[in-house]
Design a binder for these strands. Sequence first.
RNA 1: GCCGGAGUGGCGGAACUGGUAGACGCACCAGACUCAAAAUCUGGCGGUGGUCAACCCACUGUGCGGGUUCGAAUCCCGCCUCCGGCACCA
Length: 835
Amino acid sequence: MELGGDSVPDSYDFTSIERKWQDYWRERSLFHVERREDRPKFYYLDMYPYPSGELHMGHVRNYIIGDAFARYKTMQGFNVLHPMGWDSLGLPTENAAIKFGVHPVQWTEQCVGIMKQQFDRLGISYDWSREIDTSDPEYYGWTQWLFLQLYNSGLAYRGPGLVNWCPECGTVLANEQVVGGRCERCDTLVERTTREQWFFKITDYAEALLEDLELLEHWPERVVRMQEHWIGRSEGFSFTLEIEGLDEEMEVFTTRIDTIYGLTFMVLAPEHPLTSRLTGGTEFEEPVQQFCQRAMAESVMERTAEDTEVEGVFTGAHAIHPLTGERVPIWVANYVMMDYGTGAIMAVPAHDQRDFEFARKYDMPVVPVIQPEGAELDGETMTEAYIGDGEQVNSARFSGQSNRAAMEQIADHMEAEGLGHRDVSYRLRDWCISRQRYWGAPIPVIYCDECGIVPVPEEELPVMLPEDAEFTVTGDSPLSRHEEFMQVQCPRCGRPARREADTMDTFVYSAWYYLRYPSPHEDEAPFNRDDVEYWLPVDQYVGGIEHATGHLMYSRFITKVLHDLGWVSFREPFARLFTQGMVYKDGAKMSKSRGNVVTPDEINDEYGADTGRLFSLFVGPADQDTEWSDESVIGAHRFLWRVWRLATENMGAWNADFRADLPSDGSEEQRQIRRKSHQTILKVTDDFEEMRFNTAIAAIMELSNDLASFVQEMDAEDAADRAVFSEGLWTLVVLLSPITPHICDELWARMGLEPSLVEEQWPEADEGLAEEETITIVVQINGKVRDNIDVPAGTDMDDVVELALEREKVAKYVEGKEIAKTIKVPEKLINLVVS
RNA sequence: GCCGGAGUGGCGGAACUGGUAGACGCACCAGACUCAAAAUCUGGCGGUGGUCAACCCACUGUGCGGGUUCGAAUCCCGCCUCCGGCACCA
């Protein structure tokens, strides 16, 4: 089917109408906002995209959600900031540029051009005067400034660390960029390696990030839970053990200090530095080294796969139990991870399943120190570890009480003896921000042989990314081969020095972009503080769930840092968060690589932008995934055409001054249609507030259907009928306008109203008129619906019971029986319990 | 394993704090219009049955099994399936 704009008569001329209104809005700068004190502010933010040039209806959905909401808030009288920008600097863009054989600068320019046009054709109400582009030196210079603030506060450091290495992308990745052991961008298995990198000390904020989750009342529960898990706080005890015959100690963390008397061996992670120090020069050196190398060579996937068996090797060394003084063997095993806790554990096989399996495999003693109620554990015969609570046994003077109490006492005792301390461990790792890639902001530091690491002075920012660098992927920083870039004078001593060749990760730029929109052209500071204080926090943030533990965590972190440095007054950047669902087609997520995309341009050409907008919001709840359906698109279009005809074919009955002619009482039909109009305002307002666009649209469709029926019956000469119809049509067009703004503005103009609906006030319902006059009361007998009775609103329920008993249907069931109980729910139902 | 979420007609989905299950839309069926088709308009549409022409009536029905209640898609207990997140986390 083809409905190509003006070429086919079977629709309205959406092509020229949409262009006309887009021009109208742009020419009058209707979406431009400035600070103003006469209206409450509302900062609506969509997560900005990276310019891929592949905008499809899946992406479009969240921009439509945002646009409908922003337009609604504007009509409600808010001063709405609704900006858009480009996450153009970083790996995604660079990879795309390499793939298509162009320079990232060109690629960005090209894609931004295309996407901006697509947004405009969709009629999205962005304030383009605030557009930001992270690859603009203006922007990334301030990102470098941000780096320096962290560096100067001790929150950015360079150091060796166990990092994720993507061999395909030739760079390290943050933990948050590894999904299921694979690179989130190219799906390659990630390797673990130790490399010098730049880190942001997000772990310093672990507690604050966790605690402040409580402030995020309007965030989806699951995102809060995901962050909680990601931070992974656990309370326990840290202590050190001496190593027999060596001037070394090992530190461990445990959540079960109550089980310390059941400690029968120690285990190190294969990456643990002690492994070589313990075995150096001994007969164990070779087997241990072999084991460690083999374990470390395994990818994250292999190492942690469910069916991977616990495996290890003895180091020949022994540690001294801090409480009993016993010698316990030290092993190395694959089931201990270097990046959690201390990379070493105390093994209590009786009360930890992995330790248990390990002990059985290598024939080590299992000593129960907690006895479950009603059972007697025997280390020789038990078949699995007991991890529950019980009575403390075999634990010197701590025996004979509950293990919970013993846990506290043992901790007290060890703290008093200076053997260790209560501690908290987090799963969260420091944020690795350096990348061995070209397309990013150079990390603003200089290496001087004399002075060491020297930060670039703020006044020398931005450190420009040279456009003429070779940026092929080799596994080390492309900038290191650009001599002109690398050679620099040390800002401190003036001697020749070299620049840092690594660039910053994409997520650093997006961790603060929401602070830039309020003053996008500020050149004295990253942002104008008054503007930020006026607009922030973001009142409503919308984006994909995939950013739950990455971007959203980083942004919260950066905001907290800026708060602590005195740059902003708030601790959380996003007051409300909404995660929109994805669009699937043929059972798979829409994506160009799968070849199942529908582009907004196709829809615009065939049905018009309003149809695409309406469909995107009508398919289902906005926070749920949904399946693309060509049929439903046609359905959406049909509805718009019906609205078009309802309005244009009944212009004779339209009266712009309808309010003067509205009947104070009116006929049954008139009252009914007025009630529907006002009910629809209430329903749609309510739904918009909670972003339930699908049900809002259903309500508008009902109003439209009722109006269409009314039109059949009405007298086009009768002033009251005309007024009632006009009120309904007026309501319909206003309520629909945030969703399908072009057709609505066109109808609005044809109805002789002005200016654009963009500047119209959101309607307020007359609650009195919305109230039902007649209420249907359901009559149940023993909980089964047997009849229903229409009564005037406010009828006493006792009277309803009387009425019900007179009904034939009811009598049939009640006859000859006794009414044991009568349930009366006002305005709703009665239930006669008979026996 | 732990943590979130979901399971309702042929399909997408409605159903406020327990109160007529299936709004709205798609698909489908019938009718009107048409030479015909498309489009449009009108009506029907969970299942089974009652002599169903019709109105009508009965039973049954929200993943499964129990329970609470006058009354359960909704609350409780126990399961199953699917989706998402985390995971040898010490």
